[in-house]
Simulated scan of single mutants.
Amino acid sequence: MSGSKILVVDDESDITELITLYMERDGFVVHSTDNGEDAIKLARELQPDMILLDISLKSIDGFEVCRQIRTISNVPILFISCKSDDIDIIHGLAVGGDDYMTKPFSPSQLVARVKAHLRRQSVNRQNLAAREHDEVLRFDGLVIDLPGRTVHVGEKEVFLSTKEFELLVRLAKSPNRAFALDDLYTIVWGHDSMGDTRTLMVHISNLRKKIEPDPTNPIFIVTVRGIGYKFNIKEGTGNVQR
């Protein structure tokens, strides 16, 4: 984890300096900018391991920055913002953010959150490489290629963020099993994550918009009332190929 590249995008220089100080103290390599357009360019050129992204920026806001980065990268993006309303949090996650922290925050807590994301990402990659080599999940109208990390709905490939892909794989590998909200959040975000299940619910909503024929009446990711979610398939309509 030491040496991981972190891109900090914030127009408050004192915040950027504080984050940089704490991140570098833990061995991270920090790059920063206060400009949205520059952030997109740096994300492409630097290929950072994680991005810390404010919403209020020069030229274009953080929502649009995230939306554009998501067309070229699935790097984990953590929004850091003084906007704490649910609508802002939901919007940030809906455009492709993986997590959200509100200002003011403890720098040490931010570092812990970053480490949790990077650690979880590393574990998931190792698990995919070790246990899911050449594995493809096929369902009626939906194909999930685990080693290629691609998803096709019919003939069309759909782009998923890292957390969206991990959620879909976790659910699809245990079809018809009901997952509690807290359990599913812990499985994907990790035991040491410090978010809440609103993050999970927004990601589920995003997934439905991308893979369901009718997101308002889902056939794959269905709600289990009083429990959480499950990946729903009829007998004989799904299989795994190696």
Score class of each variant (00 low, 15 high):
residue 149 R to G: 04
residue 17 E to L: 15
residue 188 V to N: 06
residue 140 D to A: 14
residue 152 H to G: 04
residue 48 P to N: 04
residue 40 I to Q: 05
residue 173 K to D: 14
residue 217 N to T: 11
residue 130 A to Q: 14
residue 175 P to M: 03
residue 242 R to F: 09
residue 92 G to T: 06
residue 239 N to L: 08
residue 108 S to W: 10
residue 149 R to E: 12
residue 130 A to T: 05
residue 95 V to M: 04
residue 242 R to W: 04
residue 226 G to D: 02
residue 165 F to Q: 00
residue 121 Q to V: 12
residue 150 T to N: 00
residue 143 V to R: 14
residue 11 D to N: 15
residue 123 V to H: 12
residue 49 D to S: 04
residue 35 N to R: 07
residue 29 V to Y: 08
residue 166 E to S: 10
residue 64 E to R: 02
residue 22 Y to K: 15
residue 39 A to R: 03
residue 227 I to F: 05
residue 217 N to P: 02
residue 86 D to N: 13
residue 184 L to W: 06
residue 137 L to P: 02
residue 91 H to G: 04
residue 31 H to L: 06
residue 122 S to H: 09
residue 138 R to F: 01
residue 205 S to M: 08
residue 75 V to R: 03
residue 90 I to N: 11
residue 57 L to A: 04
residue 3 G to C: 09
residue 75 V to S: 05
residue 116 A to Y: 00
residue 146 L to P: 09
residue 53 L to P: 07
residue 85 D to S: 12
residue 199 T to D: 06
residue 48 P to G: 08
residue 121 Q to R: 14
residue 200 L to M: 08
residue 204 I to D: 06
residue 127 N to T: 07
residue 31 H to R: 14
residue 90 I to F: 14
residue 219 I to P: 07
residue 105 F to I: 10
residue 77 I to K: 01
residue 117 H to A: 10
residue 211 I to W: 03
residue 14 D to R: 11
residue 215 P to V: 02
residue 36 G to I: 08
residue 168 L to A: 00
residue 145 D to W: 00
residue 71 T to Y: 00
residue 113 R to P: 04
residue 166 E to G: 01
residue 231 F to W: 08
residue 114 V to Y: 09
residue 69 I to D: 08
residue 105 F to M: 13
residue 106 S to G: 07
residue 127 N to F: 02
residue 66 C to P: 06
residue 96 G to R: 03
residue 170 R to V: 05
residue 179 F to Q: 05
residue 2 S to I: 14
residue 152 H to M: 13
residue 107 P to E: 09
residue 72 I to D: 04
residue 138 R to W: 00
residue 185 Y to C: 01
residue 152 H to Y: 14
residue 24 E to L: 07
residue 112 A to N: 15
residue 232 N to Y: 12
residue 185 Y to A: 07
residue 138 R to S: 13
residue 78 L to F: 00
residue 41 K to N: 12
residue 216 T to E: 13
residue 232 N to M: 13
residue 146 L to S: 11
residue 225 R to W: 06
residue 43 A to I: 07
residue 53 L to S: 09
residue 214 D to T: 10
residue 68 Q to C: 07
residue 165 F to E: 00
residue 51 I to A: 07
residue 99 D to W: 02
residue 46 L to N: 10
residue 76 P to Q: 05
residue 176 N to Q: 08
residue 214 D to P: 05
residue 241 Q to H: 11
residue 10 D to G: 09
residue 121 Q to D: 12
residue 192 D to G: 01
residue 91 H to Q: 13
residue 233 I to Q: 09
residue 148 G to D: 10
residue 216 T to K: 14
residue 79 F to W: 05
residue 152 H to I: 00
residue 227 I to D: 01
residue 106 S to D: 15
residue 9 V to P: 00
residue 77 I to Y: 04
residue 54 D to H: 05
residue 213 P to D: 09
residue 152 H to W: 08
residue 242 R to K: 14
residue 200 L to N: 10
residue 195 G to L: 05
residue 74 N to W: 01
residue 53 L to F: 06
residue 196 D to M: 01
residue 81 S to P: 05
residue 161 S to L: 02
residue 79 F to T: 02
residue 48 P to D: 05
residue 187 I to G: 02
residue 167 L to N: 11
residue 129 A to N: 10
residue 186 T to A: 13
residue 241 Q to G: 11
residue 93 L to Q: 03
residue 146 L to F: 03
residue 141 G to W: 03
residue 102 T to V: 11
residue 18 L to M: 15
residue 30 V to E: 03
